[in-house]
Design a protein around this nucleic acid. Structure first.
Lengths: 210, 210
DNA sequence: TATATCATTGCAGTATCTGCACCGACTGCT
DNA sequence: AGCAGTCGGTGCAGATACTGCAATGATATA
C-alpha cells in the first residue's frame, strides 16, 4: 500500500475501502455462484453494507463488474494514439481499447478475477460492448483527431465520420471475436499486439481484401 | 398466411388476435412516449389484457418489439444462401440477415412502425444485436454449410470456424453502422443490396489502410 | 354430452433500482 | 477546542419487471 499522498483524508480512504469491499465481495460471490445466482442483497451482506449504499457506488448490479472496465484510457494514451504515424489506424485503435481494459483498476488481482468472471458470463461481456456503444461519440472524436493529425481531409461531407463509425463497429467485432476465443491468461503488451494483428488479418480475409 | 384455411380453430384465432392487440398497443404507446416511459401495465391496460397474459406471450418487455424480428429467416432462404456461388460470402450473409428483418411479421404496417421505434430507441437496436449474438451458433453453422458447399477445406483445425465467427462479428458491425446511419424508409431488395455493398466497401477501406 | 385442453387471470412473491429524509462521522475554519 | 458545513451511509416507501401457482371458464375432442 504505497500511498502516494501521505494524507488524502480519512473520508476518502473510507470511501475507497467501502467500494473495494463491495467489489471484492461481489467478485467472490459471482465467481462461486455465477452472476445471475447472486443477488444484490447477498453482496451487501457479504460486504457489510446496506443495499442503498451499493447503488450509491454502482448504478446497477452489472456496474460492480463493468464500472472498472472503461473502454477508453486516460488522456496521455489517447494523445499517443492520436499522434502516432506510419502505423495502421485500426490496429492502433484496437490496441488503445484493449490496453485500457487490460490495465483496469488499481488492483491487478481484482482485474484478473474480473477477466475470469467475463469468461464464465458471456452476458457480462455483452455489457462491455454496450458500454463501448454508449461511448461511441467519444471514440469517433478520438478517431477524427487522429485523421486530422494525419492530415486527412474528406472529399465528401461526413466521409471521415462514416469511416470512424465503421472503425468503432469493427473494434466491437474484434472484441466480440476475441471474447469467443476466450483470450485467457496472458495480457502482456507484445502478445496482445500479436493477437490483435492476427484478428485483423482474419478480418481482411473475411472481407476480401487479401 | 392463415387466410388460406377457412377454419383453423376459434382458439387459435383468438390467440393471434390477443398477440396482435398487445403488439399494436405496445407499438403505439412506445411511439408516443418512448420505450422506457412506457410500463408493461400501460400496455396491458391499452390492450385490455392482464399483465400475466402479456408475459405469457412475450418473455420480457423488450420481447414485444424484438420477438418479431428474427435474425434468421426460414429454411428456404437459408438454403438459397448456402448454395449460392460466385458471390461474396459476407455480402450474401448480410443480405440474408437484413432481408429477414425487413420482412418480419405478417403485417407490413407493424413492421414499418417497428422500424420507426428502432430508430428512436437505440437501446432496442442493441437488443437486436443481443438476439443475434444469442443465435451465433446457428449463424456459424449456416456459414460452415456455405463453405462446405463451396468446397472449401480448412488447412488448420478451426480455421473455417474462426472465419465464420469473424463474419458474424462483421455482420454485427455493419448492422451497428447502418443503425447509426438511420436506414429510414426504403427496404426494397435492390436498395438494400446497394446499402450493404457500400457498407462493405467502407469496411474494406477501413480495414485495408496502412 | 362428458372430458380434456388450454388461454387467461389474480395473487403472492422476488429482484432491481430510485427518491427522500435522517443521522452521524469527517472537514475546514476560527 | 469548538462550531458549522459537507457528505457518506442508512432505512424506508415505492415503482417496475418478472415468475410460480392454482383456479376458472371457454374451446376442442371423444
Amino acid at each position: 500500500m504505497t500511498r502516494g499522498q501521505p494524507h488524502e483524508g480519512l473520508r476518502e480512504r473510507k470511501r475507497v475501502a467501502t467500494r473495494s469491499a463491495i467489489e471484492r465481495a461481489a467478485l467472490a460471490l459471482i465467481l462461486e455462484h455465477g452472476f445471475d445466482h447472486v443477488t444484490v442483497d447477498m453482496i451487501c451482506e457479504a460486504a457489510m453494507v446496506s443495499q442503498r449504499t451499493f447503488f450509491n457506488y454502482f448504478g446497477s448490479k452489472e456496474g460492480v463488474i463493468l464500472d472498472a472496465m472503461p473502454p477508453f484510457p486516460g488522456e496521455e494514451a489517447v494523445a499517443t494514439f492520436v499522434h502516432a504515424t506510419g502505423t495502421d489506424v485500426l490496429e492502433d485503435f484496437l490496441e488503445l481499447v484493449f490496453g485500457s481494459m487490460a490495465s483496469a483498476g488499481p488492483d491487478p488481482e481484482l482485474t484478473r478475477v474480473r477477466r475470469l468472471v467475463f469468461q464464465r458470463n458471456p452476458v457480462l461481456a455483452a455489457g462491455l460492448l454496450d458500454r463501448m456503444r454508449e461511448r461511441e461519440d467519444r471514440a469517433v472524436a478520438i478517431l477524427l483527431d487522429r485523421f486530422a493529425a494525419e492530415g486527412r481531409t474528406s472529399t465528401r461531407a461526413g466521409e471521415l465520420e462514416d469511416e470512424a463509425h465503421m472503425i468503432v463497429g469493427l473494434t466491437m467485432a474484434v472484441f466480440h471475436y476475441l471474447m469467443r476465443k476466450q483470450l485467457e491468461g496472458r495480457v502482456d503488451a507484445d502478445r496482445r499486439r500479436t493477437i490483435i494483428h492476427e484478428a485483423v488479418m482474419l478480418m481482411r480475409r473475411a472481407v476480401g481484401t487479401v
